[in-house]
């Protein structure tokens, strides 16, 4: 049996990750089961919800605001699905430490498993929602490009980014519960700062510059390029995606490692 000294926790993050991979699996299964246990349509909601949202928004923005983006329904549903992935996963992981307080007070588990598994659960729901994107593609008779095979790249970048943000938020929330109230406003502000229902081309150069500082824009933009335009954008876009994701993930791990030491005294 391996000799374990608890003082080295954090240094062997990868080792912990491998030992506790079944735990991530079980936590994700639990999240999904509990989420849909009592609903009549169950998993269908993951597909139906984005479709209904898209219909509502498409109607509002084409009929009332006269948007002229090509294949607007597809444009909207991609933006919405990815943004929902970000906001949902980070909100759930923000609360993951507090809501599992009973567990980490009694049993040793590597604590970063909790925010990460929240993001994984949200990723699984997002993958279900991709069925909605496919449905919209079929209905709008959108051409299918080979570049669709590359969509895992922006998705993976976004996954890493969400994990990083989730770890920072979950750690801070243990010390300052204010985060829970504040974050709803932050996600709304970020939603407006991300071209979900409008196009970046319609903005002034200054605003465009600001939007480009938002990593979420790059993930959604690359995703849309790959599905709707069928072209492979230049290296800058790819670099913006992977760099922002990796940096956020590393910062997240570092911040979380520092914050987790005193979790137990505050939950």
């Amino acid at each position: 049996m391996a000799k374990s000294s608890f003082r080295i926790e954090g240094k062997t993050a990868l080792g912990h990750f491998l030992t506790y991979r079944p735990l991530i699996h079980e936590l994700v299964t639990r999240d999904l089961k509990v989420k849909y246990r009592r609903s009549f349509l169950g998993y269908v909601w993951s597909v139906l919800n984005p479709l209904l949202m898209m219909c509502l928004q498409a109607w509002v923005f084409t009929v009332i605001f006269k948007s002229n983006i090509e294949n607007y329904p597809l444009y909207l549903i991609i933006g919405n699905t990815l943004y929902t992935f970000f906001s949902e996963s980070t909100t759930i992981s923000m609360n993951s430490i507090i809501s599992n307080a009973g567990l980490i007070k009694k049993v040793y588990i590597p604590k970063f498993i909790l925010p990460i598994s929240s993001v994984v659960s949200s990723l699984v729901t997002t993958l279900f929602s991709f069925a909605a994107i496919v449905i919209v593609m079929i209905i709008t008779r959108a051409p299918v490009h080979w570049t669709i095979l590359l969509v895992w790249f922006p998705l993976l970048s976004m996954f890493l980014f969400n994990c990083g943000v989730g770890m920072i938020l979950s750690g801070l929330t243990v010390y300052f519960r204010d985060m829970q109230h504040l974050y709803g406003v932050v996600t709304l502000a970020l939603m407006y700062a991300t071209p979900i229902f409008y196009s970046i081309d319609a903005m002034t150069p200054e605003v465009q510059f600001m939007i480009r500082l938002n990593p979420i824009y790059h993930y959604i933009n690359l995703f849309r390029c790959l599905i709707m335009i069928g072209g492979v954008p230049g290296p800058n876009t790819w670099f913006a995606c992977i760099a922002s994701a990796t940096v956020t993930m590393i910062i997240g791990l570092m911040v979380f490692r520092k914050l987790q030491k005193n979790f137990l005294l505050h939950i």
Partner: peptide, 12 residues
């Protein structure tokens, strides 16, 4: 049972 097993570090 499976969840608790995983908490203690054991797979399915």
């Amino acid at each position: 049972v499976y969840l608790n097993g995983a908490v203690l570090g054991h797979d399915r």
